[in-house]
Design a protein around this nucleic acid. Structure first.
Lengths: 358, 358
DNA sequence: TCATTGGTTGCATACGTATGCAAAGTGGAA
DNA sequence: TTCCACTTTGCATACGTATGCAACCAATGA
């Protein structure tokens, strides 16, 4: 009711030092694990600090240690629940290592250069790129600057930047085999972002599986990993004279939309009239309304690998591109017709493992 | 292939100054909008900066300006898509003001005190609390420290902290009126977090609407805004001898789960056997599989208000608790039986506006 | 007792930038 | 030309912390 409070400047280590009757160094050492400080003065300092409400200034500390303990996470959009899940896990794992997340989100992909500029100004200790590619000049610049970068769920053509991915090629292949084993003979593919490595690899694997069975015609439309565009693509495919019996949608986020269009706009029964498979095994894929047969991308393992790479490179100061590839599994649910064999139950989930499979 | 690169220290303003043949001050002024600098030296500095790959060190700048241009966003969990949507919009809006997001997520609610400690060490310019409450000591501490705090979609008992919310009481009330107008006579409520203001207000409004119609019995179970718990709560309610005809689920995130349980575990038809209404108007509520009748929480307006409050308080240095309440609307879809009157169409959406409504 | 050792402490400085102040430069008017 | 007003520049310092170095202290052994 008194209409605002005048800003009081925060307590500094010198003030604590004076209050405790010691030097500023002693205060600093009190808050530096492993520093040389006697229990007695330490106690004095802690008491004074508590009394004054002192908190070390991480900004000032960064300036001198050259470590901000901040990791930049770049995630252009969060529409696909896969990414928020990743973000949550990243927050958890990085907090455990006493690092913090500076998040860059909500921008158009083509605006990533200014974003990059901002992020570099904060002298972050590492960068996780989860939904944007990086021009190779920028990647180069990071390497020269000694900032580790990890591409999450993405790779680049040249392999100069570290990455964590799953076996997208094998996953696509497995889905192809699964649909073939289910007896399907005509196929469609709703693609993700055209220039993304996940899209390319998943499709390549899928196509190769079909090719081995002598099938070369695949109806392809592009959904760009966007819900709205996936709906449009689905409408186009379902309106075709010869609608494919089986559809691989490049990720679950789009697959959910496609299922809705199939059921509610075209009256198709799934899987009787149409089999749909997806990728990611994200939340809604597991919901009973959808029950999407999908290849998992194990978020926990992927995030763990990402953080491991970053921590290693930050500690060693040596930046050598590492590429971690994590295996996924084909989880069988109800959105696609079942093959006669190859389904095993593990930990309450049904997994597809064909005999000749890798 | 050469096995790592030695970390090169970043370019400093002094190095640029030397290279350009000017003083360090000149470099600083070149990158400070509105500073006194001639076009000629400015050009020289920019050229040198570009050549050396110089970027101002935001950390060092913060130290002297006492402004980090960082806003802490605390969002314990992102499971409910509402929050990722908010996060994306926050990223966008704050980036436009040249602020950045330090995200705290992936922790248990009871661990919020250490989180708070971390966040204070970075001398953030403001704090947005989107899924955690703040003990009143901590709130007090922020005020004294001159750090603006905004509670997003939450209020506290005492109104000492700024907040942005929607008219939860009115929303709950409107949903009650809607269900009554639809002819229902028995009601259930699946609650959110017991101690959250949203849950309390929505239920209070709902109950008051029913009370005015002489209905005082409401079957209540608690879902704590969690999908899993909501499923359990739904199973309990649907197994009752006298299952309510209409169910208000405290948010859409839970409502989606409840609909799945109703349909696929109990074989209930919606809305023929059971009407369900939710809150938030979040993504899945709009999907055709669900089509949840729901009260909107307009994310864009809420985020705008939040950022406005923060910017005001940061600029003025005066922290006076402000409470912004944003109106929502009842969007009518297919998850609940329709009343005979009161539905109007606006911008392609069907909105419920009863005659006597506020 | 003194010398030695190992642990503590304070002093002084460095990190990279912003900014008040005074000096220097510029241009115009008389 | 001289004077004045205004702009531009550099110097010096400050921000809050960490840390090398030297001084100091306590405890131990001879």
């Amino acid at each position: 009711m008194d209409g605002g409070v005048i800003k009081r400047s925060p307590v500094t280590s010198s003030q604590v030092a004076e209050h405790a009757g010691v030097s500023q160094s002693a205060v600093s050492r009190t808050f530096t694990p492993g520093a040389s400080i006697s229990p007695k003065t330490r106690a004095k300092v802690l008491a004074a600090a508590k009394e004054l409400g002192y908190r070390p200034n991480a900004i000032a500390r960064s300036l001198i240690t050259n470590r901000s303990r901040i990791i930049a996470v770049v995630m252009a959009y969060l529409e696909n629940l896969f990414y928020p899940d990743v973000l949550e896990e990243l927050g958890r794992r990085l907090a455990a290592e006493n690092y913090h997340v500076l998040l860059f989100t909500g921008f158009k992909d083509r605006d990533s250069d200014p974003v990059f500029d901002q992020l570099m100004q904060y002298r972050v200790d590492g960068i996780i790129l989860a939904s944007t590619s990086l021009s190779s000049e920028l990647s180069e610049e990071c390497t020269v600057a000694g900032i580790p970068v990890v591409l999450f769920n993405r790779t680049t053509e040249r392999n100069e930047t570290s990455s964590v991915t799953t076996r997208n090629r094998e996953g696509g292949r497995l889905l192809g085999q699964f649909l073939l084993a289910g007896g399907h003979r005509s196929f469609g593919y709703i693609a993700g972002l055209e220039n993304s490595s996940t899209n390319r690899d998943r499709f390549t694997g899928f196509r190769s599986a079909l090719a081995e069975a002598g099938i070369h015609d695949i109806v392809v439309r592009t959904g760009n990993y966007s819900r709205a565009e996936a709906e449009t693509a689905a409408r186009e495919i379902f309106a075709l004279e010869e609608r494919p019996e089986a559809l691989f949608v490049a990720n679950d986020h789009m697959a959910v939309a496609v299922m809705d269009v199939a059921r509610y706009e075209f009256g198709l029964r799934i899987p009787e009239d149409l089999s749909i498979v997806g990728y990611d095994d994200v939340g809604p894929a597991r919901w009973q309304s959808y029950g999407i047969t999908s290849v998992t991308q194990p978020i926990s393992a992927m995030v763990e690998a990402t953080v491991d790479i970053l921590m290693d490179q930050i500690e060693s100061g040596e930046i050598e591109a590492r590429h971690k590839i994590i295996p996924g599994e084909l989880v069988v649910r109800s959105s696609a017709r079942l093959p006669g064999t190859g389904i095993v139950e593990i930990d309450g989930r049904r997994i597809y493992r064909p005999e000749g499979g890798s």
